[in-house]
Amino acid sequence: MCIVRGMSALGPTFLGLLESRPQHGYDLKRAYDEHFATKRPLAYGQVYATLSRLLKNGLVEVAATEAGGGPERKRYAVTDAGVTDVEQWLGRPESPEPYLQSALYTKVVLALLTGRPADEILDVQRAEHLRQMRELTRRKADGDLGDQLICDHALFHLEADLRWLELTAARLNELSGEVRGR
């Protein structure tokens, strides 16, 4: 299973990985697999489809084209618009839902990799979770037993996420060392 699910997170993750230096699609795939793919590596098709979309949207550009024995190899670089895009993605809280850790974990690791404050990502997410928990608690107070049970289910899931957030916040230094040591 890949940690990053869906294309929405893959694009900004590539942009973040490209910030350190321009890279080939192959290098990006390798870096991605190293940090984010726990079981199944990323398919080449996904890599090039994502790069092509980022290119079309002006978020990456081709920094160099190298002729070799086979087909031409392109080296991709992130553009200013791409850096802005990844900044916005990192700063935006995920919509609280069960098992959101996948996207959040990616953000935290990418922030550590790119020298951004990972604790701020966790703080923004905590605030969003607590906001939603307050809303559910209010809804519960006004609802019948059915509403209360439905809200309780959501509240327990959000609470589990928050525990994960706290634990991750307490382990950021350790995680930073591990991520940078890879």
């Binding site: 905590r126 605030a127 607590l130 928990m133 509240l155 609470e159």
Partner: peptide, 23 residues
Amino acid sequence: ARVAAYADREVIVRDGRTLDVAG
């Protein structure tokens, strides 16, 4: 967190320091 959700807003205390969370 489920207890804190009864409040209007939260203030986080970490290592003796406060961190305001928008509520």
